[in-house]
Nucleic acid binder design. Structure first.
Lengths: 344, 344
DNA sequence: CTCAGCACTCTCTGCATCAGAGCGCCAATG
DNA sequence: CATTGGCGCTCTGATGCAGAGAGTGCTGAG
């Protein structure tokens, strides 16, 4: 008996597995009778109770109260997903369905549709961390809107388009604007704004003053545009979580959860962790130390461009979720996103 | 008595007013005793009960059950906001606060921040219908991303930037792309894509074939980009509604409501109505025929560019909301948005 | 090691009760 | 004749209680 505090024998593992599976299916605490029926082990409830007591001692399961069955603890879930779970890969049909719903017109749409399709197909909340961009630019363009208002259009190295309106002190002529953008495009395409700043520093004095002002404005705006759009997280299908009984019974918890969704930064930190490792990662319950996520699990996978990890996709749902289904979905979505982005 | 079925005498109006006010403040059905205390009318509860019975007959108030006080019906709210309500304008400080939170860098940000600030300040959900755009364009640009992939950048007449990636059959050289965009910019700036299509029809054959293909692609993409971005509604602060007791007690209703938020089209129809009239409009309870909004009111105001209505801002909250506060907030936000957009 | 049996505990449901709130009606009043 | 105090009625919400159901832990026998 004593050595069982460290390792689980095969029978205990099987029982834990069926217990978790049944609990995920039913949402009801599962008792010894049910377990004896569904484990396939041909043991009486009484014997199973012994094993369950051990599992409880080891912290894998717990009972809400004396006369209810047992439910998995976070630790129980952890063991389940790490060593007991068998995921079945998606069939071709589902992959095609996923792929068909991704909108590849531009990066924003791609990211938004990825998040949306994740939520649609899992019926939980889908999240995508927008791809990290390099600070470099590919193309820049000034456009005169009115007397002293310019529209700055910036195409990043990855082919994303950003734009912002700049107030200028002096009124530039269209040809001055063309001149400025030509100079930037021809000399500095591919550089980061930091580099441009350095290299311009020396030349800046030689330029006509109005032109140098324009450059400075462009640099400032470019810097800001790049840093601002640094990283963000797109969430969709939060509504789905309202329908989950495990969560919606606890109104206060539910509100905390939705507040978390609004304060993106906190969520971002959690998701960023996932982009350090490869492949699917699973955060269970409050493991991450985030109380609002107590009853939730987060399944994430990083996606990449040209072999470099640039962001994360994932699903947020109740801890009691069908992991064997969600895991491959997240996995494939990350891969689809990677390949869609790499094509650029 | 009989003539009172049509008009409310002054006393009944005052009582209805204080009843609605107290109910909005407390959320509790208000009884005759409370009304006699707060109306300032120095009438006994018994007398007030008579008036209340009349008000109930006329459908302005109703009682949830025999021994509770009365609550306003939608019709009661309607009468209240239409003829009893006295709104107090915002002070300068609050207006400045509102104005300070609008981000004017570009249209998307402006709209998003308007929606956000509405939700922040009212603690309900803020909605903004994105401005209708004319189909015309100001500037177009082709950018080569790779062998057969082009980035099309489109600046609309209003100064918004759209972009999309186009797959081409043939590989164009940078100079061909410049040539194409120059041609479009110089000949057709300001035209709608429909006009361009017509005017190009005749000339298209005279162009080199590759160029005409490029034009066709640009037109198609432009058309789509314009039509797609037609109208949308931006919502923020839905979370706030979770905290409202009137709504969150009814889980199913709450879910219907959030579903409505996801299916933007339905919501859009409702909000579009508001852009037909000038000034603040108020939709109460299920008046609009939308069951999910049964317990909600929508306060909207249209905003304009150069004197033409192009969209709607609004707040969605419980029917039991402090209208005298929300109305001026929505009003001012619409005006601020109008002026921010008109400056372009 | 397995298992049947038994006592125990805890939840959930229905039922009855009781106080509180508020109304409608009526008769008295100035 | 509008106003008002009073009385009976009704409905809700809280409280207490008993019984059924579910599941456990333990014990002693095979």
């Amino acid at each position: 008996m004593a050595n069982e505090t460290h390792a689980l024998n095969e029978r205990a593992q099987l029982l834990l597995k069926t217990l978790v599976e049944r609990y995920i299916a039913d949402g009801q605490p599962v008792g010894s009778r049910a377990l004896s029926k569904y484990s396939g082990l041909d043991l009486s409830p009484a014997s199973i109770r012994n094993v369950m007591a051990d599992l409880e001692d080891m912290g894998f399961i717990a009972s809400p109260h004396t006369s209810a069955g047992r439910v998995p603890t976070p630790r129980g879930y952890r063991f389940f997903v790490d060593t007991l779970l068998t995921v079945k890969p998606l069939d071709r049909v589902e992959i095609n369905q996923l792929e068909g719903q991704l909108q590849v017109e531009n990066t924003q749409k791609l990211v938004a549709s990825a998040s949306h399709v994740l939520s649609e197909i899992t019926r939980f909340a889908g999240v995508v961390v927008t791809p990290r961009r390099s600070a470099g630019f590919r193309h820049i363009e000034f456009l005169r809107l009115s007397e002293k208002r310019l529209l700055l259009i910036l195409v990043t190295a990855e082919g994303d388009v950003q734009n912002r309106i700049i107030q200028t002190e002096k009124a530039y002529t269209p040809s001055e604007l063309v001149e400025a953008s030509n100079m930037l495009n021809q000399n500095f395409a591919g550089c980061t704004f930091e580099e441009i700043r350095r290299r311009l520093q020396s030349e800046l004095k030689q330029l006509r003053e109005d032109m140098s002002q324009l450059m400075a404005a462009a640099l400032a705006a470019g810097d800001q545009a790049v840093s601002e759009s640094a990283e963000d997280v797109v969430i969709s299908g939060e509504v789905n979580l309202l329908g989950i009984n495990d969560l919606s019974s606890n109104m206060t918890k539910l509100r905390e959860l939705f507040n978390l969704f609004e304060h993106r930064t906190t969520l971002l930190q959690l998701l960023d962790v996932s982009s350090r490792a490869q492949g699917v990662q699973i955060f269970i319950g409050g493991e991450a130390g985030l109380t609002p996520l107590d009853e939730c699990s987060v399944v994430t996978a990083p996606y990449e461009v040209d072999g470099k990890i640039v962001g994360t996709v994932g699903v947020i749902g109740p801890t009691r979720m069908a992991y064997e289904r969600v895991i491959p979905i997240v996995d494939i979505t990350a891969k689809l996103l990677s390949s869609a982005l790499t094509q650029r």
